[in-house]
Amino acid sequence: MIPYIVRRLAAGAGLALVITLIVYLLIGTSFEDVARTILGQSATPEATAALLEARGWDRPILVQYVEWLAAALQGDFGASVYTSLPVLPEVLSRLAVTLSLIVPALLITATLSIVLGVWAASRGGVVDRIAQGVSVFGYIIPGLLLAIGLVVLFGVQLGWLPATGYTRFGDDPAGWARSITIPVIVLVVGGVANMSAQVRGRMVDELRRDYVRTLRTRGVSSRSIVLKHALRNAGSPALTVMSLEFINMFGAALIIENVFALPGFGNYAFNATLQGDIPVMLGISTFGVVLVTVVNLATDIANGWLNPKARVH
């Protein structure tokens, strides 16, 4: 098990390396643009050249990448070219904001999806049609539109929840809950639409299997069949969907955080990309890859626990 985890993490690190190099090559040619943006309206040719030299940006791209990499391996991800603030603490504090949004959203999504999916698959009929209706509804409503609609209703018209902004949990837990409510609802609606359909489909398949019929003939209660046997077998693919959903939500955060002016990872990535803040983009890429790798690994390990056939040795 441990060699497996090490192998997977090493593969993740390799992937991070390749992706950061690609990111670097894609954006690396624009140091002059970055210098001009920093200087703004006083970007005379001399001033631009002086800044390029002062920051060492006039050296070959690959030399600069190798230097960045060497420092990054020692935990130094450099500093934003615009704010001069170190990237690492900023990335971590931004990640905390995004995770404080995504983790509750994911837990609610999983709970609702399992309840809805299991209920629909085991009851059928009207219940099933309602569950599928909910799912289709979640699919067809664009997240951005829903976000704006909810802000207008609850933030602007009713004034129940803040329209924008973020309160840190440590400062005011109730304020934090209020500030993430609408973004979490938006993420949950999209998540449940996807995941409940997957759970339902898988449960329907499981309930048609031979072992279920055998259990029924033995007089095992429906409740026990659904919750103890079928759900456990359906759990494994649901878990995979959940990990994909986590990654999806991470992507959705890019838009959501801008709509709600939340100081999260997506907002940080968005601004860094717009400005061409190279060290920040590299830091974000690295942490993005590491996060996805860890989530996938955790999913595989959890799958092994749920399903012995998927277990790795």
Binding site: V152, G155, V156, A163, T164, G165, N258, V259, A261, N271
Partner: peptide, 12 residues
């Protein structure tokens, strides 16, 4: 940064 977010904040 987002214009709609700014507008909603003023309106609310």
């Amino acid at each position: 940064q987002d214009r709609t977010a700014m507008f909603n904040s003023v309106l609310s």
